[in-house]
Design a protein around this nucleic acid. Structure first.
Lengths: 201, 201
DNA sequence: TCCGTAATTTAACGATCGTTCGAGTTGCCG
DNA sequence: CGGCAACTCGAACGATCGTTAAATTACGGA
């Protein structure tokens, strides 16, 4: 069976917002792309803004779930946690190009009331990187003198995937993820220690 | 004396396009911001598209001039050339936030006819990084196993500056440039050699 | 069967958009 | 002074925008 009205609508809106930008996208084009009339759309969402809000919310849910799944499979070692977050973020950017493009460029189109909650969740995502990197620096296994700039560099590397990656490109996603993890560990200047668990206290 | 009509118009358009996005920006708001009537604007530019084209063109001119100036002050050593390009790009992003935001997000708003020439110049900018990095890898002083992904990571780090940097922030621009250069050399895994000039041939 | 709710339709509203037109003003050059 | 070009203006055009209203169909439970 084909996707229900809601799903088809969100998918159509994702494509339009991602391709044209929120301001240039037309809700008539979205409805047509979803195979329904303009008014049918208003039965599900009360307007263009709520459509954007729904997309951003659902996209963040998907992203956080992906990060949580990756983090659940590793221990407390900062290198493993950073690797997990880098891998999850790179994979999300590549597998959800439209979602990522909207997340990364349409924050300005959010109504002021909704911007606060979005910014809060955005900061929460940044903290996933921050905690892993700061923990590694504190433990002496990440030698970078610039934890903040390193974090921004790692995040920027992952985010940029949404701008250039194409599924049919020469590089497989699995290979890209491995390379991004390696580069991220290079950026923070990861130097493994013999025993992590014994190093505490 | 205050800026002439053209300059005031371009500055106003930069602000509006950067804040609202090309699609959402109104040429009426731009004209008002520039202190002239709507029709006066059409005396200088034949439409919204040409306004965007003029901004992108002038921004790229400024960027390339900045890169050329930086490269003219260094020799042929790949590390120096990469450092120069990273410094010039980081500085440009920070000093021209509006220009950078438009350059990095409004390519999709360009008319198809003009997109070709823009993409060509954009690729030329990428090549500044590519040549420096590939030369270093070929010379054996950049040890990164992933020159392409390293290049994308370095460029992404520089580009991201336009999204978070604020002139009144805690970090001075000079200090940020130094850190970005250091991180870029870390990403490509720069290992200095005793004598570069003797290593040729 | 009847009722109520969901789902979907066509039509239209007011607003704003990019663009154009025609006339008016300014200022320089001969 | 006359005239031409650069410049500026208010008003309007047609199109499209987001949104709303009224009316009709589909359908599940009492």
């Amino acid at each position: 069976m084909r996707p229900s009205g809601q799903d088809a609508l969100l998918e159509a809106a994702r494509q339009e917002f991602s391709e044209q930008g929120f301001g240039s996208a037309s809700i008539r084009a979205i409805a047509q792309r979803a195979g329904m009339s303009l008014s049918a759309m208003y039965h599900y969402y009360s307007g263009k803004q709520e459509l954007l809000h729904a997309i951003l919310d659902e996209s963040l849910d998907t992203y956080f779930a992906s990060c949580a799944r990756a983090l659940a499979q590793v221990g407390e070692e900062p290198a493993d946690r950073l690797s997990a977050v880098v891998a999850a973020t790179t994979r999300f950017r590549a597998e959800h190009l439209a979602r990522s493009n909207i997340l990364l460029s349409e924050e300005r189109s959010l109504a002021p009331e909704r911007l606060a909650s979005y910014s809060s969740r955005h900061a929460e995502a940044t903290n996933l990187f921050r905690h892993a990197i700061d923990a590694g620096v504190a433990a002496g296994i990440f030698l970078t003198p610039y934890p903040d700039e390193s974090r921004r560099a790692v995040i920027a590397m992952c985010n940029a995937v949404a701008q250039w990656f194409r599924p049919d490109g020469p590089l497989s996603l699995d290979e890209l993820v491995d390379r991004h993890v390696a580069i991220a560990l290079t950026i923070v200047e990861y130097r493994p220690q013999r025993s992590w668990s014994a190093g505490r206290g």
